[in-house]
Amino acid sequence: MFWQLLTIELKKIFKRPRTYIAFGAILVIVFLIQIAIKYDGKSYFDLLLNNLSGSFEFDDDFKHKFINGYLICFVILNTLLIQMPLLVALVAGDAIAGEANMGTLRLSLTKPVSRTEYMIVKFVASFIYTIALLVLMAIFALLGSMFIFGTNDMVVLRSEGIELIKQSDVLWRYLAAFGYAAIALTTVSAIAFLFSVLAENSIGPIIATMSIVLVFTILSQMNIPFYDDTIKPYLFTTHTVAWKGFFYVKADASGTTINGSIENLPAIMRSLGILVMYIFVFFGIATWIFNKKDILT
């Protein structure tokens, strides 16, 4: 029954024209970034390297290697993973509230399906939608950029300098980063689900979710020492950017990066744990409320 219900949910999501707005938006952003870098990438990366040029000298050959598919994908991920919560909230915020608004919720709940089962199916379907978005990103941002810009060792810019990751050591990091992003976005999904259960139209949950993401992101990025220990460690937005950790590598005594290494894996795992905890808490509360709720729409 679970698989049958899941198939139905996926059909409902993917038969809906509005679902493809998110896919279209991703394609447009990826394409625009790729075009811009293809035709004027050098000045963009000169700007990026400005901060480091005081202590490093970069020759043209290095700059040529520097702009390759792996780096472009990193830039795209940096840009898109901030916007993607909105795209996820569009579907997750609509999951229950949209059905209530359409009037189909009451009909669905007269069927022999438990409310918990209904919630789980909806949540898994929205997770699959998130995965679909990330797969699309992987295809166009990673594989597309590899095709357009070629591959080489990957340069990662950090505040304290640059790191060079061997090209043979890059792809698994992207796989891990996309996997981590799926969990991070599912956290947003869980929050949107909670609001979706409380509302009777989709707009409220979508706006409420985005407001929370926005406020938490601002708090996470503010450099106010008082918040560093008191609030920031508990905000999910502090942990959603931990995917970058997969691109921070260890170096040996000579300064050469070590293949397959991750600078601070425990920190990534801790962030992952916090996100998973967020998912369980928010989804748990949403399911509890949904089970108690009188369906009046």
């Binding site: 059909k11 038969k15 189909t104 009909l107 007269t110 069927k111 022999p112």
Partner: peptide, 23 residues
């Protein structure tokens, strides 16, 4: 229950199929 609200973006047959499966 009251007016029959269904998935407007799906066909008549698809709607029936969905509610049959849910039953």
């Amino acid at each position: 229950i009251e007016k029959p609200d269904l998935y407007k973006y799906l066909s008549v047959l698809e709607n029936l199929k969905i509610f049959a499966a849910m039953s």
